[in-house]
Design a protein around this nucleic acid. Structure first.
Lengths: 249, 249
DNA sequence: ACTACGCAAAGTGTATACACATCAATTGGG
DNA sequence: CCCAATTGATGTGTATACACTTTGCGTAGT
């Protein structure tokens, strides 16, 4: 009763009740933030003591997170943080490329609702303005990260297919692979991807489904390529290294 | 300890503990079988009385099924059977086509493990034998349904990517859209799809990733087309009509 | 007759106690 | 000295009681 929880999302995915919801959010944050190691076993009583709730909402949250693919479950052994080996992370980009490709194809076939169209136009305009200077300054990348997120989210909402959006959301929530992050910091790369966005948007408006899909697939694939290149330069395993960098537009 | 449950699957997806597992299976069966209507609200106490268990495993099962996308959840209102409008069912084929396309691409890139290769070869041989007669008899479709399932499952296992296989599994579990069913009964159509399987397998063996992906996409897309055609002939809504027919190879 | 308030019944959310499985360490036998 | 069985501790699985939220019905007021 005293807790203030943003239960904006109503019935998507595998949510759970009041208190369990906040537990779920805190746990997800902890997992994605790397506070708990991959493969680590999550002790229910310990968590319930830490979070000052009973085991019931903790269990509910754990099961919901398992539904999101962040945890593994083994009977009589409880939940463990799912491991995401580097190959699996890279694969996630291919999966995401295929799914977002289908999403924009749907959007191009069905047409863009006015609301989403406005959001996208605003995002594109904001990107144009940010990029017209010809170079990046301090907080610019953070700003563009949000712009990029708005673009993809709006396109996602435009498909009107829950299963598809949930799957894409899962791809975005693969540890270290959040959409709102950017792998390549070079101005020139961001510029190119912003141009991709324009082209994709045009294809959707022009009702060219297959061109839109193809562009989106290539768009996401190029992000994967950048990630792989980034990783092969510095051999370091990116569990923490990528944390602030992550993935791309 | 008196109950005999097949807990073959260990840590995939969102499973839950011993008793909850059997509850989950029974509920899934009931939902997929159409025993409970879409949109219907699932009463926890009623279910627990029906199944002779307490509410705890029932809740666990419900949350797990929500994680599989079969149920919706609303805080303080419980779980409802998710609705799958006809457009969503049709969309599922496009999503499945994209995902299985990526799966075979991975298989072609990575190579087929000996075990899966054997399974596929056996399935293809069995299909050849079944089809060489030139026409279908009574139980032949049921047999081919299993052959078809084995083929797709083996290919799926060969990718070695959990997220991908789970997503494909979800597509297959969309109500009325199980892979192991076949929409078109014509011998000629099954023949064509069996040929598709051969070509896909060859492409995977020949290490031609993009050709394999393209073939698989077209393969699944053709099934969607058949379904749409089937539906537009008889205008009846397929909630029950498709139950025995379903979807295809 | 219609609306608004309130109360009661139904149902979900949470806490807690107990049953059972798993794992590790210790002890007894070979 | 090593292997194995048993026993304890740790931790999950289930049942149940209670608190809170929602919802529908009934009543009173306009």
């Amino acid at each position: 009763m005293t807790e203030l929880i943003d239960q904006t999302e109503s019935s998507a995915g595998a949510r759970v009740g009041n208190r369990a919801l906040s537990v779920m959010d805190r746990l997800r944050e902890a997992i994605l933030g790397g506070a708990v190691a991959a493969g680590e076993r999550l002790n229910e009583v310990q968590l319930s003591k830490t979070l000052s709730v009973s085991r019931t909402p903790v269990r509910a949250a754990l099961q919901a997170l398992a539904g999101e693919g962040l945890l593994d479950y083994a009977p009589n052994r409880g939940f463990t943080v799912r491991e995401f080996p580097l190959p699996a992370i890279v694969d996630a980009y291919d999966i995401r490329a295929a799914l977002e490709g289908v999403a924009v194809r749907f959007a191009a076939e069905r047409g863009l609702p006015a609301k989403e169209r406005e959001i996208i136009e605003r995002a594109l305009a904001a990107g144009d303005k940010l990029l017209e200077r010809g170079s990046f300054e301090a907080g610019d990348l953070t700003i563009y990260r949000d712009i990029n997120g708005d673009f993809h989210d709006a396109l996602l909402a435009a498909t009107g297919n829950r299963m598809l959006s949930e799957m894409i959301r899962i791809c975005h929530h693969v540890p270290v692979s959040s959409t709102r992050n950017i792998v390549v910091f070079e101005y020139h790369d961001v510029r190119r991807r912003h141009d991709d966005h324009h082209r994709i948007f045009q294809a959707v408006l022009a009702r060219e489904p297959w061109r839109a899909e193809m562009l989106m697939r290539e768009h996401v694939a190029s992000i994967k390529t950048s990630l792989v290149g980034y990783l092969s330069e510095r051999k370091t395993y990116p569990s923490a290294a990528l944390q602030p960098a992550g993935d791309g537009p």
